[in-house]
Structures are given as structure tokens and as C-alpha cells.
Nucleic acid binder design. Structure first.
Length: 498
RNA sequence: GGGCCGUUAGCUCAAUUGGCAGAGCAACUGACUCUUAAUCAGUAGGUUGGAGGUUCGAUUCCUCCACGGCUCACCA
């Protein structure tokens, strides 16, 4: 059976429905309850109760299963979240209604009116008196047992995925809850939510390759933002001591189970604070989000229980020594500060690195290779080499160390935060450093942002800022291994034209 | 971009050493007024991702291409 033949058959049924005088695409269906409401509200209503005082309802949804019994039929109607059984008996409906039923297919959108009862096996069921077709499903739905597993179709035609695999909807309902709770947490603490440009004349605030676009009237190139960071800090200068933005960033990089070209980030800034204040805040924030969203502090991720009641903190250097598991001898703290010994360690363990990397970048590589994957429980890693932290303020006692931390859960980096650099002269020097790299061909190197430096010249209070990857946080709280499972329409190559 | 694995009916999957391409669900016809993976009887549905090659013969072996999955690199 070709798909085209199924469509032809269903179109023919639609014509017959029209011939019988039914409106094939009615404009509305007034209902008394959604399917979910029925299931929830009547969950405890017993058989006798329903029999003694019948409840008339009107509800609607998609027909997802159909069991025909000649002059009667059972079916399930879904509102996308819950399903309820309906029972249609020839001698309880009009001839016209029964005729309509005979033209229905699995997938059709229907409205029903009738009384609620419980079947012999106790299932809550609508005994249908009236039936309406609300829209016809012309294409066949995937198989009812295994659902749809082909990722190609699941992501490209997410609507089919959501129909065939109702648990997929729960991932996105939970994602919505996470976003809601993040906002609530910050709103309660007097952070102001703002919206800054997505299209920027210069893509700053992170080292990443941007997407480029063009504004015709202005005749200028614009870049999709890689981070809102520099605009948010301008706002702190202007007098918003607590701001946040929760929206999309765009990075023209590879696609993987951890990366999508557009991703959602929460970025927030808090004046008169440093990175230690944000460590405490992050811990409180995540613990609260997890509890409110899942109802527990413990979350199962990929077969492991992650306890948001157990937090760990290490400096980056200590973490390498603490989690050391490579076959070669554990390095000394001095080894980790010097490029020569670091190269030897990386070489001996077949960890790749770029020759131009200094000690800071090399120790960063070593951290990624040794530690990252072992950080299952919520862990804060702090004090990063300044070499890999161009926008962070350095420690007073050690200018090679940036006041920066990252937060890991389930081996995944969830957040990145630092004490913001607020010295305009130093900021200019760092931009100039980046410019040199840009000239040398590094596409990801930062450009010179004169206006940002000008804003710093008006005085940025001591400020700490943090970014939280909302997609990755959602992965942890929905037990998903791939970022594509928590993004409704993940980017793919265009569908090939047949 | 590199490596490995995959692509068979609308969906989920089989097919022995290279020897007639199959099942379940969905669809169609018929039976059936408390079923729920409804059941029973029957019917139809395939350029095996695409192009080439080896062979008497290719879903199976080889090459290239497209798409996907995992992984490494880059990155959050």
C-alpha cells in the first residue's frame, strides 16, 4: 500500500462525508472538558456513582485507536497529553452519526458528546450520543506499538513524533516548567528581565564564529549574537544592578549531541558581587529548580542518581589532582603551571592540543580529558587560567588565574560564571590581544568593541555574571542524552527533494 | 571535517554461504453491540536510499554519492 493510495482512500472518505451533508472542517467545537480534565476530575468516580447521577460531557481530540465491533465500536481520543475511551453503539446514536463513524480513520480529529460511564473492566468511557468530525487526517499515522523511532522523521516532522510518542510532549512540558521556574527564581530576587539585540554589528561576549546577515536599508552587515553579555553589562553600567535575559544564542559551529546552532541561555548579572556570591546563588537556584520541577532533589540521569543535595567544589588545579585516573604518574602542582611538563603529560596520554597553546590552555585540555566526565554530582570548578577566560577579572593574589567557575552535572557543563572585568584599560588590552589573533586568522577571536569600552569608562560596578545552558539543564532533568531531544525543531540538513 | 555503524512495505523489524523479498501493525473487503496490542476469515501493498561494478544470479560482495546514528576534533 503506497502512502499515496492511503491518501486517495481517505480523500474519498472525506468526499463521502461531505456528500452526507457534514461540514468537513467546522470552525469550532464547544466542549465542557478537555480529555485531560475528564481523566483528572473523574479518576475516582466509581461505576455506581456515575450510573446514579450521569454526567454529560463534550470533549474533543485526536482518534488514536479504533476497535470496531460491527454495530458498536471502542476508540481512544487523545488531547495530546491524556487519552479517554469512547464507546459508540449503533442503537444509541442517530443513523447519520453512525454513518459518519463508518467514514472515520485513526488520526481524525473528533468531538463527542455523551455520558461518562465505566466499562466492565473499569475504564472511564464516554458513551457517545453525538459525534462530529473536526478535521480529517489524510496521512497514515505511525505504528501503535513501537511508535515512531526513525530520528529523521521524528525531528523533521516533530508533529508526527508528538502524536505517535506522547512522552515526547512531557519533555517539552518539563522544559517549559524549567524556564518558568528560572524566571520565578530571578524575579523573586528583583532581577529585571530585559531583551537586548539578537542582531549585532559585532558578535561579542563569547569566542565563537557567528552567523552573518545583511540589513538592506542600513546597508550594513549584522551578526546573530553569540552571547548577550556585553549588552547586559552596559545595562549594569546604566543602573540595572540585577538583570537577566533568557533567550537564544547562535553559534556557527559544529552540531553534536551537545550542540545546536541556536541554543537557549539564561544570562544574569549581579552588581556589587563576585564569583563566590554566584556559586552560592547557583547552588540555591539549581536545587530549587530541580525540586520544583521534579518534586525531588534526586534525579536519575542515564542510569545514575544525581543528588542535588550533594554539592562539591574544587579549584580546577585541585580537581585534576583529585580525579587523576590516567595511566601515567600523577603530576605535581608545579607541572600543571608549566607548558613543558603539561605537553609531556598530554603527549604521554595521547590527548591532542594545538601547539600554540600556553600553559593555561594546556591545563584546560588536561582538565577536560581527566575531570569533566567524572563530575556526575553537581560540582563547581573554580579558578580558571586567565588564558582561556578573556572576559573575567583576575585574582588579586595571582594574575594568571581568573575569578571564574563552571558548573558540571552528569559530566555536562551547565553553567559558566565569573567576576566581570571592569577595568576599561585592561579590557582594551585584552581586546587588542584578541584582535592580533583575529588578524592571525582565528575566526572566533573577539573584535574590538569601542562602545563597550566607552561604557566601562563610565564605571561598571564590581559585578559577577553567569550563563546557564537551558537546553543542557533540560537534558539533565529529562534524562536525555542528546540536545536534539530537548529542542523541538533541531537543525538538520534540508530535506532532499525527491 | 575524520573513524565506525546503519538505510528493506505508511510504521516497527526479519531474510541461512550470493539462490523465489517476509511478518506484525496500519490500509481494504466481510463477520462481530463491554473492547482495550480486540478477535476471526480474506485482499492489496516492494525499482531493498541513489548511481555504477563483480557475478549465471546481488537486500547480501566492491566503489562512489545522499541521509542518519555513535564517536573524535571545535564548541556551551
Amino acid at each position: 500500500m503506497h502512502e499515496a493510495d492511503v491518501v486517495t482512500q481517505r480523500k474519498r472518505k472525506l468526499e463521502k462525508i461531505i456528500e452526507a451533508g457534514f461540514d468537513p472542517y467546522p470552525h469550532k467545537f464547544p466542549y465542557t472538558h478537555t480529555v485531560s480534565e475528564l481523566v483528572k476530575q473523574l479518576a475516582r468516580c466509581a461505576h455506581d456513582e456515575l450510573e446514579a447521577s450521569p454526567i454529560h460531557v463534550r470533549t474533543c481530540g485526536r482518534l488514536i485507536a479504533l476497535r470496531a465491533h460491527g454495530k458498536a465500536a471502542f476508540a481512544h481520543v487523545s488531547d495530546g497529553q491524556s487519552r479517554i475511551q469512547i464507546y459508540l453503539k449503533k442503537d444509541r446514536v442517530s443513523e447519520r452519526t453512525f454513518e459518519l463513524y463508518e467514514f472515520l480513520d485513526i488520526g481524525d480529529l473528533v468531538g463527542v458528546a455523551g455520558e461518562i460511564f465505566r466499562t466492565r473492566t473499569g475504564e472511564l468511557t464516554v458513551s457517545v450520543k453525538e459525534l462530529d468530525l473536526l478535521a480529517k487526517c489524510l496521512l497514515p499515522l505511525p505504528e501503535k506499538w513501537h511508535g515512531l523511532t526513525d530520528t529523521e522523521i521524528r525531528y523533521r516532522q516533530r508533529y508526527v513524533d508528538l502524536i505517535a510518542n506522547p512522552e515526547v510532549g512531557n519533555i517539552f512540558r518539563r522544559r517549559a516548567a524549567i524556564v518558568r521556574e528560572l524566571r520565578r527564581f530571578l524575579d523573586e530576587r528583583d532581577y529585571v528581565e530585559v531583551e537586548t539585540p539578537m542582531m549585532q554589528p559585532m558578535a561579542g561576549g563569547a569566542t565563537a564564529r557567528p552567523f552573518e546577515t545583511f540589513h538592506k536599508t542600513l546597508g550594513i552587515h549584522l551578526y546573530l549574537r553569540v552571547a548577550p553579555e556585553l549588552y547586559l553589562k552596559r545595562l549594569v553600567v546604566g543602573g540595572f544592578p540585577r538583570v537577566y535575559e533568557l533567550s537564544r544564542n547562535f553559534r556557527n559551529e559544529g552540531i553534536s549531541v551537545m550542540h545546536n546552532p541556536e541554543f537557549t541561555m539564561l544570562e544574569f548579572y549581579q552588581a556589587y558581587s563576585d564569583y563566590f556570591d554566584l556559586m552560592d546563588l547557583s547552588q540555591e537556584l539549581l536545587t530549587q529548580i530541580v525540586e520544583r520541577v521534579t518534586g525531588s532533589r534526586k534525579v536519575e540521569y542515564q542510569g545514575e542518581v544525581i543528588d542535588f543535595g550533594r554539592w562539591h567544589r574544587f579549584t580546577l588545579f585541585d580537581s585534576i589532582l583529585h580525579f587523576w585516573n590516567l595511566p601515567t604518574e600523577k603530576p605535581s602542582p608545579t607541572d600543571l603551571k608549566n607548558a613543558g611538563p603539561l605537553r609531556k603529560i598530554l603527549d604521554a596520554n595521547q590527548i591532542s592540543y594545538v601547539p600554540s597553546m600556553g600553559a593555561g590552555a594546556l591545563v584546560g585540555r588536561l582538565f577536560e580529558a581527566v575531570v569533566e566526565n567524572q563530575l556526575r554530582h553537581p560540582t563547581i570548578i573554580y579558578d580558571y587560567p586567565v588564558e582561556i577566560s578573556p572576559l573575567a577579572k583576575t585574582r588579586d593574589d595571582d594574575p594568571s588565574i581568573a575569578e571564574r567557575f563552571e558548573l558540571f552535572v552528569g559530566g555536562i557543563e551547565i553553567a559558566n560564571a565569573y567576576s566581570e572585568l571592569n577595568d576599561p584599560e585592561e579590557q582594551r588590552r585584552r581586546f587588542e590581544e584578541q584582535l592580533k589573533r583575529r588578524v592571525a586568522g582565528d575566526e572566533e577571536a573577539h573584535g574590538m568593541d569601542e562602545d563597550y569600552i566607552r561604557s566601562l569608562c563610565y564605571g561598571l560596578p564590581p559585578t559577577a555574571g553567569e550563563g546557564i545552558g537551558v537546553d543542557r539543564l533540560t537534558m539533565i532533568l529529562t534524562d536525555m542524552r542528546s540536545i536534539r531531544e530537548v529542542i523541538l525543531f533541531p537543525h538538520r540538513r534540508p530535506e532532499s527533494v525527491e
